[in-house]
């Protein structure tokens, strides 16, 4: 057990898995000597050699495309896309191939690889360094999408992603790369994909968050002593754990969803649709969502204006509670 931030926990997961399985290789821009621009692969090239930790040419489609080729013949590539804003040249490889090769070959070939990619705002960076494009991938049949909310989860979820037989897009919220320190077991452990985490049980309202905003949601839970909030961390965005969400909403009758990405067709849209299908008659108030806007994320001066916050989430919860009273 040691106190780690998320960068260290991810590094630890990679190191332990690479020790376990020599067919795991890393590839990406600056992942070798440099250790990645966020240092997630720090020291791995030295420990495992340049044949296993490959600095790639600057080409995202090439990184993901060659990783697909490596995966189909038996390696387990873990590729890194440096920033989410640079993932788009690789979308063709993910949407046209990685997600489809199992189906196209009717099971003969599959693409067990992990695409690691930082995501989201909150670090006052340049354009294309603060986006939240997870919905594109959640919308793609055949991909799994995971986003951890802290160091402990990051290590366990990345370990599962690496051991998974399917293509997993592993988004790492950069806002919390170093913002949270937690006790992390030094041995290897796996947190199952496809299962949400009920962080705190409560009876008044279901608060759903994922990635960086779980930390903020926890602060809301701490501050709002008068509301008994049930806090759910999705952990895996695809496949979505509908059961945990529905069970919770059937109990609380109210729901608030937090998502950093643009509002339209975000995770919240799908969650609301599923609640509508499976728990509509349990609802005591309209569902609220706290999201980014359908705009480009502003540059550093106005970034906060765009992002969710403790205040925005608290207001949404108050609104839901008030509406529920009005309905009863």
């Amino acid at each position: 057990m040691s106190n780690m931030n998320m960068v260290e926990a991810l590094n630890d997961a990679l190191r332990l898995e690479m020790k376990r399985d020599k067919n795991i290789v890393l590839i990406g821009e600056d992942v070798g000597e440099e250790g990645g621009v966020f240092r997630v692969t720090d020291g791995l090239a030295k420990e495992f050699g340049n044949e296993r930790v490959m600095d790639s040419p600057l080409a995202e489609s090439g990184i993901v495309g060659t990783s697909i080729g490596m995966a189909v013949v038996g390696l387990k590539p873990i590729c890194e896309i440096q920033f989410e804003g640079f993932i788009f040249p690789a979308i063709d490889q993910l949407v046209s191939h990685a997600s489809r090769i199992r189906n196209r070959s009717r099971g003969r070939f599959s693409v067990p690889m992990v695409v690691r990619c930082p995501i989201g705002g909150g670090i006052k960076a340049l354009e294309h360094h603060s986006d939240s494009p997870e919905s594109y991938f959640v919308h793609t049949p055949g991909l799994k999408v995971v986003m951890p909310s802290g160091p402990y989860d990051a290590k366990g979820l990345l370990t599962s992603a690496i051991r998974d037989p399917d293509t997993v897009i592993f988004f790492e919220p950069k806002k919390i790369y170093r913002a949270i320190k937690e006790e992390v077991p030094s041995e290897s452990y796996a947190i199952p994909l496809g299962k949400a985490h009920v962080i705190k049980e409560g009876k008044d309202v279901t608060l759903i968050a994922y990635g960086a905003w779980v930390k903020t949601a926890k602060e809301v839970v701490e501050q709002m002593k008068n509301v008994d909030i049930e806090l759910i961390d999705l952990r895996t965005l695809s496949p979505l754990d509908t059961e945990t969400i529905i069970d919770s909403v059937q109990k609380t009758g109210k729901c608030v969803i937090v998502q950093e990405s643009p509002r339209t067709l975000g995770l919240a849209s799908e969650i609301i649709a599923r609640i509508n299908e499976k728990a509509f008659y349990s609802l005591e108030a309209p569902i609220e969502r706290v999201t980014g806007f359908d705009t480009i994320v502003p540059l550093r001066l106005h970034e906060e204006y765009y992002l969710p916050s403790v205040e925005k989430i608290s207001n949404a919860i108050e609104k839901v509670m008030k509406n529920a009273k009005g309905l009863s």
Partner: peptide, 21 residues
């Protein structure tokens, strides 16, 4: 490998397979 319909996007797969070999 199965037929690839989108033009040119299967080339990196062959390179990746060769890297793996």
């Amino acid at each position: 490998f199965p037929i690839s319909i989108t033009v040119g996007s299967h080339l990196p797969h062959a390179v990746g397979a060769a890297m793996a070999f």
